[in-house]
Write a protein that binds this DNA or RNA. Structure first.
Lengths: 204, 204
DNA sequence: CATAAAAACAGAATTGACTCAATTTTAGAA
DNA sequence: TTCTAAAATTGAGTCAATTCTGTTTTTATG
């Protein structure tokens, strides 16, 4: 089953994603018509719907690649965190935030987030939830690492703390992408300020 | 200007909202067609769009009424909080969560949240952000009250703490409405567990 | 190398939110 | 009461996502 058909399939997937990514960037999500994506990718409208359930899933595929890169980048920090709880959290969160706007515009994030709440059971909706969980898990892993290093108290509920940190960061990020004028530096400063309360409570 | 015209206007508003609320409940947001809402409300499609910018704004009007009720209910707790930090937070959050599903289904919440991120500058998008801010402010007020009562340390950054508590709760609520099977009791228990870390850090 | 079944494709038709130009209704002046 | 301008209503028309059905391509089999 890995003959011509499989190769064509992979190729069409790639062409659709590339066409869509370019159009989303240039014309915005709403502005990118399926008809145009199809034309750019040199497939028919019907074929696009054979590959993706709906327009949102196309964006979803792009966002998923992006978040996976972010997760990868985060690995390094967990393996080798700064020797200070506040800095460690700030570094990891910094990586998430800075990476996030590298390929995806605020508008694309807004759409992706909206779709994931609107259709939580669609392929992308489920993928997005899984990505959120993976990010939470990475923060939890960082906390566990800091506990091992003796920088965070052992009696802290790492799971709950990881969720708290992630949820707060995520909500702040949502508000951030909702305001076009919001700056990354301010977002990071606000999150640092919030985390300071936690850091004071958990640092050895 | 409070003659016939104003009365008719208020009446049409009411009819549209009532028709929409009934249809959203019965057929879901997507299932409720504007055409049907118009027919139910005995106005034309055009009139609906004269009153609301888009379908989302109709839902928005319903959600806003709901959240304002929640805010009202919260007042009581802030004025007279339980004499224990954990219980005080739990009581306020409990009111928010329990009230929230009284009139609005999970699906309506999902749609409302999605619209508010998708179109943050639409009338409802802005209203929703304002409501979030009002809830955050109410939590901050509760914390200030607890500080006054000597139950929370004076040197705690109440603003940042309020944001942290609200953001975490809100994110948990978002995940909650995304899963139809999720139960209120579990949601509250999870939030309590997360808040426990904070309570330990801030209680006198 | 035929050929039948399965998979994928194409694009016309459908659907439903939203717009807009024409019409009707209201408020207030003469 | 009559008239006029402003405000509101109407619904047929537009637009773009999604569906549907017939056609083509690929694969597997003899």
């Amino acid at each position: 089953m890995s003959g011509l058909r499989a190769r064509q399939k992979a190729d069409r997937h790639r062409r659709i994603i590339e066409a869509a990514a370019a159009l989303f960037r240039d014309a915005g999500y709403e502005g990118a018509k399926i008809e145009t994506i199809a034309a750019q990718a040199e497939v028919s409208i019907g074929t696009i719907y054979n590959y993706y359930q709906n327009k949102g899933d196309i964006l979803g595929a792009i966002v998923s690649m992006e978040v996976n890169e972010v997760l990868n980048a985060g690995h390094g920090v967990v393996a080798n965190p700064p020797a200070n709880v506040g800095d460690a959290l700030d570094t990891l969160i910094g990586i998430y935030i800075e990476h996030s706007l590298h390929y995806l515009s605020k508008e694309m994030w807004r759409q992706a987030m909206a779709i994931s709440t609107q259709l939580p059971d669609s392929p992308f909706g489920q993928a997005y939830t899984a990505l959120d969980r993976a990010l939470t898990e990475q923060i939890r892993a960082l906390i566990a690492r800091l506990q091992t290093l003796g920088l965070v108290r052992r009696d802290i509920d790492g799971q709950a703390l990881g969720e708290l940190v992630f949820n707060n960061m995520n909500m702040m990020f949502i508000e951030f992408v909702k305001r076009d004028g919001a700056r990354i530096a301010e977002l990071r400063a606000a999150i640092r300020r919030q985390n300071r309360i936690l850091v004071a409570a958990i640092a050895v």
